[in-house]
Design a protein around this nucleic acid. Structure first.
Lengths: 128, 128
DNA sequence: ATCGATCTTCGAGCGCGCTCGAAGTCAACT
DNA sequence: AGTTGACTTCGAGCGCGCTCGAAGATCGAT
């Protein structure tokens, strides 16, 4: 075979695709947030597969909804442990979901109070 | 007059009422998050008025919706500056409102993806 | 072969928002 | 009067989540 294509993305490409920095991507890996260590080229450079990128995207969704790093790691550990851990993963995700919903409700409630204040100022500005 | 009632709450009472610690309440004051310095008893202990508590409640709503301390301080400065700053206050609150709405949309979107995953696990667990 | 951009590891540093502890004063009850 | 607990100021410390920089190896285009 001539010219075997190097598979996977560089860390910079993966970072751009996920909206993260290369620093953060390395940090996540160090911190146990990848299902498996990212593959390397012969010279040691990281090569991100589609699966790696998809996983990082899941991680960012969990993070964006407020899941702490430690809990993302716990979830990752369960996935890495393989079959049989599905009930635990489900429970973890469901607990997270409930927390997010509670948080959303609180924010909406507090936002409503702030919007009342906006309405007062807007009324003042309107001069009516 | 016999037994003039001491007006206002102690810091512990105010903290309990606002769902904060006394440490946090002092920290907020130090950090310029109170409209005016809290009144003191003759011996120097803080006495929180209804207005103080109402203000702290506003601060907690701004914080709870993600406004940074520095911006709460900026808003506080405007209120302290008095009349004429209403348009700036309005603009600040409106900008905040928009950020909160954007954030809510993002969280809802990311949560939906997580709920898809929950559905997959739940399906697996259901065994159908 | 050369050169500039990108990659590696490692450990330190930072910004935010509290959180805590020390050392001392004051309040309130018995 | 004594004692227990709450209050004061001050500055330091902490947990989280990155973020950065140094020193050096490698890549890819010319």
């Amino acid at each position: 075979m001539v010219g075997v294509a190097v598979t996977g993305r560089t860390i910079a490409e993966a970072a751009a695709e996920c909206g993260l920095t290369t620093h953060t991507l390395r940090y996540y890996e160090r911190d146990g947030l990848m299902r498996a260590p990212v593959a390397r080229s012969r010279s040691g450079h990281r090569r991100y597969t589609d699966e790696d990128v998809a996983w990082v995207r899941l991680v960012t969704r969990l993070r964006s909804t407020g899941m702490p790093i430690s809990e993302v790691r716990a979830y990752t550990d369960l996935v890495r442990a393989g079959e049989g851990t599905e009930p635990e993963r489900l429970e973890l995700l469901r607990r997270h979901r409930q927390r997010v919903l509670d948080r959303l409700a609180t924010v909406r409630h507090d936002l409503a109070a702030i919007e009342d204040k906006i309405a007062v100022y807007a009324g003042t500005a309107g001069g009516c």
